[in-house]
């Protein structure tokens, strides 16, 4: 499955504002499918930073790296799925998204893509 197809699997979920594949080391966008108004570069940089910090936390706790990170806000949700190949799958969704569906979609897409 191509990266574009992977992103499409996520963006077809109602309430999703965009999805990105991000380079974990440098926080740059590798591929994206975003609605207008979503700042892809900013999301990529901050999501990679968040993933790196969470990796630091789990490492300090002697635990394996998480397979999914969810940041829930009042206006929306951010889901991150780190992959073993140095990539990170990121989904940006509004508050109206079905979080369970998004969670399954991101995990499935990350498993296929990475």
């Amino acid at each position: 499955m191509s990266l574009a197809e992977t992103l499409s699997e996520i963006t077809r979920i109602p309430g999703v504002h965009g999805a990105l594949v991000v380079s974990r080391d440098d926080g740059l966008v590798v591929a994206d499918a975003l609605m207008e108004g979503v700042e892809g570069d900013a999301v990529a940089a901050l999501a990679a930073s968040l993933a790196a910090r969470m990796r630091g936390v789990t490492t300090a706790l002697g635990q394996p790296e998480p397979v999914l990170l969810m940041l829930a806000g009042t206006d929306g949700t951010l889901l991150l799925a780190p992959g073993p190949s140095g990539l990170l799958l990121v989904a940006v969704a509004g508050s109206d998204v079905n979080v369970s569906e998004l969670r399954l979609g991101v995990l499935a897409a990350a498993g296929t893509a990475f």
């Binding site: 991000v22 380079s23 080391d25 440098d26 926080g27 740059l28 570069d41 900013a42 990529a44 940089a45 901050l46 990679a48 930073s49 790196a52």
Partner: peptide, 9 residues
Amino acid sequence: ETSLGLVQL
């Protein structure tokens, strides 16, 4: 401790 993406942003 940071990344190119953050510096660029």
